[in-house]
C-alpha cells in the first residue's frame, strides 16, 4: 500500500474543501435560490460521508489488506466537525438563534431529535481522539467506547431518511451503506493473521 506518502494533514485540508466551497458559494449566491438549505444539506451530507469513510477503514484492512488506519482519526474528526457545523447552520442560519423554536424543534421532530442524538454520541468520541486520551483510557476501554460510532451511524442514516419527503433513493443508499458496514463486522474472523492488536 502506498499510503505512506500521503500526509494526514492533507486529509484535513482536503476534507474542509466542501465546507469552504459551500459557505463561499452561499455568500456569493451561487448555491441556488435557498443557500441556507444548500449549506445545511452539504454539511450534513459530508458528515455522513466521513462517518461512513471512517467505518470503511477496518473492513478494508480486514478483507482487502488495505491499511488506512493512520487516516481514521482524521476521517472521524472531520465527521464530527461537519456534524457540528451542520448543527450550527441549523441553529444560526436556518433558525437565526431562536432558541425557543430550536429547542422545540429538536424535542418534537423525530429528524431533529435523531440528528441531535447522533451528534451527542459523537462528542465523547471526538473528545477522546487524542493519543493522550487513548493512553489514559487504555486501548481496551477506548475501543469499547468508540463502538458508539455504530449507533451513531444508524442514527445519522435515519436522520437523513426522516428529513425527506417520500422515499427517494439517495438516503436509502446511505442507510444501506451504513448497515452493510456494520454487518460486515459480524463476519466470522477466518483470517486471524489480520488481527493485529490496536496500536495505542
Amino acid at each position: 500500500m502506498k499510503t505512506r506518502g500521503f500526509p494526514v494533514w492533507a486529509v484535513y485540508a482536503l476534507g474542509f474543501v466542501p465546507a469552504v466551497v459551500a459557505f463561499g458559494g452561499g455568500l456569493a449566491g451561487t448555491t441556488g435560490p435557498d443557500p441556507i438549505r444548500a449549506l445545511e444539506q452539504t454539511l450534513g451530507l459530508w458528515a455522513l460521508r466521513f462517518l461512513l469513510a471512517a467505518l470503511c477503514v477496518t473492513p478494508l484492512r480486514r478483507f482487502f489488506g488495505v491499511n488506512l488506519l493512520r487516516y481514521r482519526r482524521a476521517l472521524g474528526l472531520l465527521c464530527f466537525y461537519y456534524a457540528s457545523l451542520h448543527l450550527l447552520a441549523f441553529i444560526g442560519l436556518d433558525h437565526s438563534f431562536d432558541w425557543a423554536e430550536i429547542t422545540r424543534e429538536i424535542l418534537k421532530r423525530p429528524y431533529a431529535f435523531i440528528g441531535m442524538a447522533c451528534l451527542l454520541l459523537l462528542i465523547p468520541l471526538a473528545a477522546t481522539s487524542t493519543n493522550a486520551m487513548i493512553k489514559r483510557l487504555g486501548a481496551k476501554n477506548w475501543t469499547r467506547l468508540h463502538r458508539l460510532v455504530y449507533p451513531a451511524a444508524l442514527l445519522a442514516a435515519a436522520h437523513f431518511i426522516f428529513a425527506v419527503k417520500s422515499w427517494p433513493l439517495e438516503p436509502l443508499l446511505y442507510a444501506g451503506a451504513a448497515l452493510a458496514l456494520l454487518l460486515v463486522r459480524l463476519a466470522p474472523k477466518r483470517r486471524p493473521s489480520f488481527e493485529q492488536p490496536h496500536k495505542a
Binding site: F23, G26, L27, G29, P33, D34, P35, I36, R37, L39, L93, D94, E101, R104, E105, K108, R109, Y111
Partner: peptide, 14 residues
C-alpha cells in the same frame, strides 16, 4: 416539522 414559519426564497441570502 413546524409550519409556523417559512423562509422567503431570494430574500437575505445566507
Amino acid at each position: 416539522w413546524s409550519q409556523a414559519t417559512e423562509r422567503r426564497i431570494g430574500e437575505g441570502g445566507l
